[in-house]
Design a protein around this nucleic acid. Structure first.
Lengths: 137, 137
DNA sequence: CGGCATCCCGTTGGATACTG
DNA sequence: CAGTATCCAACGGGATGCCG
């Protein structure tokens, strides 16, 4: 087994405490089921710079369908994570923006996104090796 | 306009807040879709205290089915997040444990867990109020 | 432009039964 | 004990079309 510790052992986030009690896990899982899904993370990420219009979000979060964008935004609005501002103009214009709560969510999401960005390729490699080992065995 | 750079910046130099290209977004979303789902969070949380046997995990992560536990563990093993150790005894015994990579993942999950614990009730309240407003309008 | 409603299909995931 | 295999219901989510 390889000893490539340099990638992992950076003075990054090693939390020795065992903070994840079963109860906490369930709470986290529940909230994550709501705000932790793929599109939510990407929409919150897109809005982290400031307010955006509906179509601007859709352009930034490439691949998202109208349906999922609408559903995601509506849920985030209900949860109090984004605000929805309608301008009674023609054509209509709707702006979405993170609330203070949304900003804190965004902040809590950053470590996960960093982790993903950092270990994405490593995980991809791990998968390839796992497949090879499976073919050998 | 955008107020960039005002986010919590721990030791993070290259926070991808406004640098998320569509391709990167999908990459991150892909990893997060794997690692950010309900059962994965709870299994990683259960293993954060140390190695556990198959049935011990199932007991701790209450509500998980055999099927999901097996699938989750297998994926985590392939991704290099947990190790699987088989003891050739009778009856058989299999231990699962977080790798160094798994520990860093758990560390990255902590802020989100704290956020969830802190704002869970607030979000629940927001939802109730949103429903009330909908009934009024 | 910014949605909502509908159809429809692939995937997720629980329940159940069987195996080494 | 630690899985594997199968079935099937529920859900997610894309495509399309219509409306204010």
């Amino acid at each position: 087994m390889a000893q490539e510790g340099t990638f992992l052992s950076e003075a990054n986030t090693f939390v020795p405490i065992d903070a994840l009690s079963p109860t906490d896990c369930k709470g986290l899982a529940g909230v994550l089921a709501d705000v932790g899904d793929k599109w939510t993370i990407m929409v919150v990420g897109a809005l982290s710079k400031g307010s955006l219009r509906y179509n601007e979000i859709q352009r930034r979060v490439s691949g998202i369908s109208q349906r999922m964008l609408t559903l995601t935004l509506k849920r985030l609005e209900v949860d109090g994570i984004v605000t929805r501002t309608v301008f009674p103009t023609v054509p209509p214009r709707v702006d979405y923006e993170l609330t203070a709560l949304g900003q804190t969510l965004r902040g809590a999401l950053v470590p996960l996104q960093l982790w993903a960005a950092k270990n994405k390729e490593l995980i991809a490699d791990n998968r390839i090796h796992a497949i090879k080992n499976k073919l050998v065995s």
